[in-house]
Amino acid sequence: MLFATNGALIGGVGGTLPALRERLDVSASGLSLLLFCLAASAVVSMQIGGRLADRIGARPVALVTLTVLTLGVGLLAVTSSLPWAIVAMVLAGLGNGAMDVAMNSLGVEIEQSRPKPIMSRFHAFWSVGNLTAAGTIVLIARLFDRTGGSNVGPSLGTLCLAGLASIAVCVRIVPTGRRIEHKTDGVRTAIPRLAWALGLMAFCFGLAEGTAVDWSSVHVTDVARIDPSTGALGLVAVSGFMVIIRLLGDQAVAKVGRRAVVRVGGVTAIAGYLVTVLTDPLPLLLIGWALVGLGVGLVAPQVYAVAGHVGGGRMLAIVVTFGYSAFLVGPAIIGQLVEHFGVQNAMILPLVLSGCLVAVSAVLPRDDQVQQANP
């Protein structure tokens, strides 16, 4: 419930940006300012939320920040001025950042109480929530296109109501999180150095995933020279196969371990990006983006799970920040590469970073070592 609601609310914000730009009457720089406020406040709250989750338990942090995120989306639904939209984005970012860390911390705790992994399924529900938000926005947009009104308020208002309903349910069903002291003989322990290696991995898969989500449709449209509505199949391939592999990823982890799953995911993403760089026909491009979706979909849940198992909320906050930052800045970097080198050559960067991900995966501890390192 937490993962799906977060995915739906964040997907709603991203999906309504074009219509929000028209309603606020701002340029691309205005939208950039809004996105910067969302990202900056999220990064700050991740660090605070991770430490609070360790100190008081992840449950209250998750529930409070879900409420803040929902209020931010609700304010964005009703505002028609840039200053209030900035306030709404800051609220949404504060809620999203800490909630991201808290719900992953809860996921790790639940996984520790089970005989088999479950983190991939949690992330699958985030993707399902994201896709549900996109479908909701498309349906409401078509309805309001006929009546001539803006779809921002109805779309975000609907998702906000869903968020409020989710809060009512989560208060009853979300388990109490445990507290983590991070002390040995009364002395506070340092954050494990593994956090920075996991952060590098998070940056690599964050940029690879962000590129796939934001640029796959443009890539397919331009390279295959087809109309944009058909090119959108690129995003369908990425998102659809990402959901599928996340629903199945826990079974793979149970059989071969997290390190092997991450390596297979990275190699699969490399294969997918190679196809996008070297081929032109539409069927091959869709196969390439499907492979990218399969690959990146496998990686994130495992890296976040290792961070939570080894170092608790504060370590998870660092790793999530790296991934979140890459997901946000990556598409802009790709945009500059597209402008100077073309959309097909731009895909070489996520290809290289996928290779870096495979190389750095050697530092991942074995699953039995992860269990022994639980804080």
Rank of each mutant, 00 (worst) to 15 (best):
P301W: 03
G240A: 00
V303Y: 03
T279D: 03
V267C: 08
K255R: 15
V303N: 01
A269V: 01
V262C: 10
P283D: 02
V310K: 05
W289S: 09
A269T: 04
F322P: 03
H309W: 11
F322R: 03
G293V: 00
A305G: 13
A252N: 06
D280S: 14
G297T: 07
G249E: 01
L248P: 04
F241L: 14
G323K: 06
F322C: 13
L278Q: 08
K255V: 13
P281E: 13
V264E: 10
G231M: 09
V296Y: 03
T276L: 15
V277R: 01
G311C: 02
G323F: 06
G295M: 01
G266Y: 04
L286E: 05
G231D: 09
V236T: 15
A269H: 00
V310G: 02
Y324H: 12
T279I: 02
I244Y: 00
Y324G: 09
G295S: 02
A290I: 01
V261F: 03
V310P: 03
V264Y: 14
G312Q: 08
M315V: 10
A232V: 13
V261L: 13
T321R: 00
A317R: 13
G288E: 04
F322W: 07
L278C: 12
I318C: 07
F241M: 14
Q251A: 15
G272S: 06
V236F: 14
V243Q: 02
L285G: 12
V277E: 02
V261Q: 02
L274Q: 00
V320N: 15
V306A: 14
Q251V: 15
L316E: 09
P281F: 08
Y273R: 14
V275Q: 11
L248D: 04
Y324Q: 13
L285I: 14
V261G: 02
V299K: 03
V236K: 01
T321L: 05
R259P: 09
L294H: 00
T230K: 10
M315P: 07
G265D: 10
G288L: 04
Q251T: 14
A269E: 00
V292F: 05
P281M: 09
V296N: 02
V306F: 05
G234Q: 11
Q251H: 15
G311S: 00
R246M: 09
T268G: 02
L291R: 04
A252D: 04
G311K: 02
L286I: 08
P283K: 03
A305R: 10
R259G: 09
A317E: 14
A252Q: 11
F322A: 14
Y304F: 15
G257A: 11
V275G: 13
L291Q: 04
I244A: 12
P283Q: 02
V299Q: 04
L278W: 13
R263K: 13
L294C: 12
V262A: 10
G323M: 07
G234H: 10
Q302I: 06
V253R: 15
G240K: 00
V253L: 11
G231H: 09
P301S: 02
L274D: 01
L316A: 11
I245V: 15
G234A: 11
A252Y: 11
V264A: 15
V299P: 02
S239G: 12
F322Y: 10
G265P: 08
G265S: 08
V256N: 00
S239P: 07
V306D: 06
I270K: 06
L284C: 07
Y273E: 14
Y304I: 09
L233V: 14
P301N: 03
G297H: 07
A254Y: 07
V310D: 04
